[in-house]
């Protein structure tokens, strides 16, 4: 599975960004290969409107299948992610990326 985490930094110890649309980065982990990469989303800061759909569109381009985040996406972004068939887990807002991944593995995160 290819898993995207909303994150405030670029490594496993970075805190999860609780926001979806205005997350600073995506930390994308590919379970199959064990590799990870960073997607910079900081340009969305300058969007007055529609951060959610824009970020959702970007994430769709990354072909992730699972999204792990904090508060969960808003209505517009959620409808895009749903169309894209994304599985979304929330409640990781206070964790690091690593802790969020462990919580997901244990089934401790809430499916959106």
């Amino acid at each position: 599975m290819k898993i995207a985490f909303t994150s405030k930094g670029k490594d496993w110890d970075a805190p999860i960004d609780p926001r979806f649309g205005r997350t600073e980065y995506f930390f994308i982990y590919d379970e199959a290969s064990g590799g990870s990469r960073i997607v910079d989303n900081t340009d969305v800061t300058y969007e007055a409107h529609g951060a959610g759909p824009k970020t959702a569109q970007r994430l769709f381009g990354e072909k992730a299948e699972i999204l792990i985040t904090g508060n969960g996406p808003g209505g517009n972004a959620a409808s895009v992610l749903e169309k894209a068939g994304m599985r979304i887990y929330t409640g990781a807002g206070e964790m690091s990326v690593k802790e969020a991944y462990e919580a997901y593995k244990k089934g401790d995160l809430k499916q959106f």
Partner: peptide, 18 residues
Amino acid sequence: NFNAITQIMDEIMVFPQL
């Protein structure tokens, strides 16, 4: 300019509120 249109696969989504 307002991210009111998104394209997912073969579908165009319009967000009237944006």
